[in-house]
Amino acid sequence: MMKQRKVPMRKDVISQEMKPKKEMVRIVKTAEGEISIDPTGKKSGRGAYVSLEPDAIKTAQAKKILEKTFGIDVSADFYTELFEYVDHQKARQELFGERK
């Protein structure tokens, strides 16, 4: 019998729900106060996870969730970039199914 591997879970800063890490994307704030998408999940800095739900990104922007999470101003351009990234990743997951 195969041993079930533990699925790493992370909290979505938008919905406050725990979800599998691979269904989310990490956003990182560097020591310099710059914010970026971290597809590898390995950049150093303060990380926060959001689920791959384009609508949630719009909610986050409207409610300034990333600003509250990181304590910095987040540009509309970053939200646009994040929305496009999430939208693309979600489409890929739907196209290719579960990626391991």
Rank of each mutant, 00 (worst) to 15 (best):
M1A: 15
K3C: 01
R5I: 11
V7S: 11
V7P: 01
R10I: 03
R10P: 08
R10G: 01
K11G: 02
D12Q: 08
D12H: 08
V13I: 15
V13S: 01
I14L: 05
M18V: 03
P20I: 03
R26I: 04
R26Y: 06
I27N: 00
I27L: 09
I27C: 07
I35N: 02
I37R: 13
I37F: 10
G41H: 07
G41N: 09
K42T: 08
G45K: 02
G47K: 11
A48G: 14
Y49V: 01
V50H: 05
S51A: 07
D55G: 13
I57M: 07
I57P: 00
K58N: 15
A60C: 10
K63W: 06
K63H: 13
L66E: 00
L66W: 02
E67C: 01
K68A: 13
F70E: 11
I72F: 05
V74F: 09
S75K: 11
D77K: 13
D77Y: 02
F78T: 03
E81K: 15
F83N: 08
F83A: 03
F83M: 02
F83S: 06
Y85D: 13
Y85Q: 09
D87S: 14
Q89L: 03
K90Y: 06
Q93D: 11
Q93G: 03
E94Q: 14
L95W: 09
L95V: 03
F96I: 07
G97W: 10
